[in-house]
Design a protein around this nucleic acid. Structure first.
Length: 433
RNA sequence: GCCGGGAUAGCUCAGCUGGUUAGAGCGUCGGAAUCAUAAUCCGUAGGUCGGGGGUUCAAGUCCCUCUCCCGGUACCA
């Protein structure tokens, strides 16, 4: 007998510090929407989850530089992006947000679960601290002189001039990128997730996977080959999910640790809304559920290495069945990028074109195996020639033909012979009548 | 630097485990039709599959090498 599966489909949680563009859509949102529509047409049990990822350094920094609260930032992008998906006919069962209480609770529970099993380790490291801002500075928010090439605007993580990988402590004359303040070195203690302990289990798990995309598998193998290391999962930051352990004021759970847990929180929230508060377990704690994460290629490590390891550590939940990651869709020869101001925002394109036209154009050129290219001319051609011309004309012609030749009525079905000779004879007979 | 991916017609892209004259859409050029929307239909030309070498009866497909582009390189998310 055919086994009946449930499908738990997730689309990457967009980070709530920018408006989504059509590259995101063709990479991580249209593919699952098509998949989910297909499953629904087949009357299969499927739920479709996404939401905004609303914590982390970048949002806190944006709020500082714009002089608004983080809440204002995330509200702006959460509602805009939620609407963008709706305007494109991408209908999630729930589009949640990680700032919701249910997510904070779920993420803290998750953290405590593995904390109480003594899985986490603590390490103390030296970090740059701005006394003026009263905060530790993330690597990328420190600039200074590169110790290798002498470039004066090197970032804390990397010198954009010579490409050297750096630690912010190596920079000569470090300063805060936000205020220009000169930081001091201060120690900070953080929780680390011992990713290396899960190396073997992960290798075994991945070995058993069939039908995964080559790009995803290669990427994972690359990480495994290099050897997995402990990963810090706390940050010195105000904006985020608080560490649920005494003595950790000013520390939050690292955004990439809690964000994927958002898939679980959102599922809980969905069934709470439906007045079936325990039904989420039917999906997350059920071996007959296929958990599928649709993402862009930039998210592979988090969904196919780190999150699975977290789920293994926790133990109560199923692991992903597949992680289909698409490549990127570029725009008129350039990468779509918020910082460079290139690309096409969903809110702009939906203001001008019908969702089906956009969906068709994107779907017919999805970056499944390699980066693809979107050009406006393409949309014009696909709309005018393929949709309006070929498909539209076919439908219109059929309707008009029916109207004029069959007296406004759909004629009865007649059986047509299958062989060519038979069809020919049939046509000749019809013409004579 | 190291690891991974990519390069196929003018443009945007398909080509699974190697197997007959390498495909599609659009564009080009040439025709046709009026049942149909400034719509349609049919046909044509166009590629040394990034360069070079190798394995094989057979290579776009496997191996080596070179060039160019992209991603990752663990505190961006």
């Amino acid at each position: 007998m055919k086994k009946h599966f449930k499908y738990l489909v997730t689309a990457a949680l967009p980070y709530a510090n920018s408006f989504i563009h059509i590259g995101h859509i063709s990479g991580a949102y249209l593919p699952p929407d098509i998949f989910v529509r297909y499953k629904r047409l087949n009357d299969e049990d499927v739920i479709f989850i996404s939401g905004s990822d609303e914590h982390g350094t970048a949002i806190e920094m944006a709020s500082i530089s714009e002089k608004v609260t983080p809440q204002e930032i995330i509200d702006r992008y959460h509602f805009a992006n939620k609407k963008a998906f709706e305007d494109l006919g991408i209908n999630f069962d729930i589009y949640s947000r990680t700032s919701n209480k249910i997510h904070h609770d779920t993420a803290q529970e998750f953290f405590l679960n593995i904390y109480n099993k003594n899985i986490l380790v603590q390490k103390t490291e030296k970090q740059l601290f701005s006394e003026k801002e009263n905060r530790f500075l993330a690597d990328r928010f420190v600039t200074g002189t590169c110790p290798v090439c002498g470039y004066e605007e090197a970032r804390g993580d990397e010198c954009s001039n010579c490409g050297s990988n750096l630690s912010p402590l190596e920079l000569i004359n470090p300063r805060s990128k936000i205020t220009g303040d000169i930081p001091v070195i201060k120690e900070s203690t953080h929780y680390y997730f011992p990713l290396g302990d899960y190396q073997e289990k992960l290798e075994k798990w991945l070995d058993g996977k069939r039908g995964w995309k080559q790009n995803v598998m290669n990427y994972c193998k690359g990480w495994l080959k290099a050897g997995l290391r402990d990963r810090a999962i706390s940050r010195d930051l105000d904006w985020g999910v608080k560490i649920p352990v005494e003595g950790n004021d000013g520390k939050v759970i690292y955004v990439w640790f809690e964000a994927p847990i958002g898939y679980i929180s959102a599922t809980k929230e969905l069934f709470t809304e439906r007045n079936e508060p325990d039904k989420w377990k039917d999906y997350w704690m059920n071996e007959d559920t296929k958990l599928i994460h649709f993402i862009g290629k930039d998210n592979i490590v988090f969904h196919s290495i780190i999150f699975p390891a977290m789920l293994m550590a926790h133990g109560d939940y199923i692991l992903p069945d597949n992680v289909p990651a698409n490549e990127f869709m570029n725009f008129e020869g350039e990468k779509q990028s918020k910082s460079k101001g290139t690309g096409v925002l969903v809110k702009d394109i939906t203001a001008k074109f019908e969702p089906d036209v956009i969906r068709y154009t994107l779907a017919s050129n999805m970056p499944e195996n390699k980066d693809s290219e979107f050009v406006w001319k393409d949309l014009q051609v696909k709309n005018n020639s393929e949709l309006a011309g070929i498909l539209g004309n076919f439908i219109n012609r059929t309707v008009v033909f029916t109207k004029n030749k069959f007296d406004n009525r759909v004629p009865e079905i007649i059986s047509i012979p299958e062989t060519e000779d038979g069809i020919l004879a049939f046509l000749i007979r019809s013409l004579r009548n």
